[in-house]
């Protein structure tokens, strides 16, 4: 038999390697581009919100934070109703989160674990709430809330937002619970847990990252929703509704400050919840 090393090797073809490197470079460029697309507006609005009124009118506009000032922002926060609206937005966001979790998580669990009559139609039916435009929903709701005495309250807005958020909460948490192996839950039952105990001690902790993702979705949806909130309230507006109503008759600086104030809390919330999204237990779940 021939010694393999004594054979003549064909020259190494480096073209596939070069192609691979080029592919990686393109990927980096794409990542950079998408990041810029997301970050640039945030940067610009932060820049404008943190500039003085005069520097905003200067031409050409400086793209670097040359003279940072909190003057505009302070003026914005000091204007009537803003601090109250800010509080309302947080109350509504957290309330929506709590309410949709209270109903959405058990519903998602049921969808993931049990076979029941009408399961498929139910899933489809869930999405119908989102099929109707908010404008169409809001007017009858406003009437209903007036009758029920919860018009112009944060409770009313929470109810609307929770209804809007529930379909996604249910469907996301159902897929999250599907990813928790049934065996693990059964093991908890064998080793002495009641059904509720197994859910709380084993299933919930394992589902937490996914549920955190669902909660980001819900909170940001509630934080951003403006149409329903402005129809259902007069004096107890959420921040976006408040900013929107006073937008047309306010100076440019005020608008930037308002935009900035709207963006920051969602970013903080996402940054906080992101912790639960990245793998909690070392490498992979299994």
């Amino acid at each position: 038999m021939m010694n393999p090393t004594s054979r003549v090797h064909p020259p190494v073809d480096t073209r596939p390697l070069a192609m691979r490197r080029r592919g990686r470079a393109y990927l980096q460029v794409a990542v950079l581009g998408i990041s810029l697309f997301m970050l640039l507006p945030i940067y610009l609005i932060s820049l404008a919100a943190l500039s003085t009124r005069e520097s905003l009118n200067r031409f050409p506009l400086s793209l670097l934070p040359t003279d940072v000032s909190f003057e505009t922002l302070a003026a914005f926060l000091g204007s009537t109703g803003i601090v109250g609206a800010f509080g309302n937005s947080i109350i509504v966001g957290v309330g929506t989160l709590a309410l949709s979790a209270l109903f959405g998580i058990p519903a998602g669990y049921a969808l993931a674990r049990f076979a029941f009559a009408g399961k498929e139609p139910y899933q489809l039916f869930l999405l119908f709430t989102r099929a109707l435009p908010i404008v169409v929903l809001s007017v009858p709701l406003a009437h209903l809330f007036l009758v029920a005495g919860i018009y112009d309250t944060t409770t009313g807005v929470i109810l609307l937002h929770a209804a809007l958020a529930l379909p996604t909460t249910i469907l996301i948490s159902a897929s999250v619970f599907l990813s928790v192996p049934r065996d693990v839950e059964e093991a908890a039952r064998i080793f002495g847990c009641s059904p509720a105990g197994a859910f709380l001690k084993v299933v919930m902790p394992m589902a937490l990252p996914g549920l955190a993702a669902a909660s980001i979705f819900t909170f940001v949806m509630s934080w951003n929703e403006v149409l329903g909130a402005s129809i259902l309230t007069l004096d107890h507006r959420t921040l976006p509704a408040q900013v929107l109503t006073s937008l047309s008759d306010s100076p440019l600086a005020y608008r930037f400050a308002g935009g900035f104030a709207l963006v920051v809390p969602s970013i903080i919330f996402i940054a906080f919840m992101r912790r639960f999204l990245t793998n909690m237990w070392g490498s992979t779940i299994r």
């Binding site: 065996d183 693990v184 093991a187 394992m206």
Partner: peptide, 14 residues
């Protein structure tokens, strides 16, 4: 009052 070993181990990953 039983005890069980599962095929997939079913240890609690968290």
């Amino acid at each position: 009052n039983i005890s069980m070993v599962f095929q997939s181990y079913a240890v609690f990953p968290h």
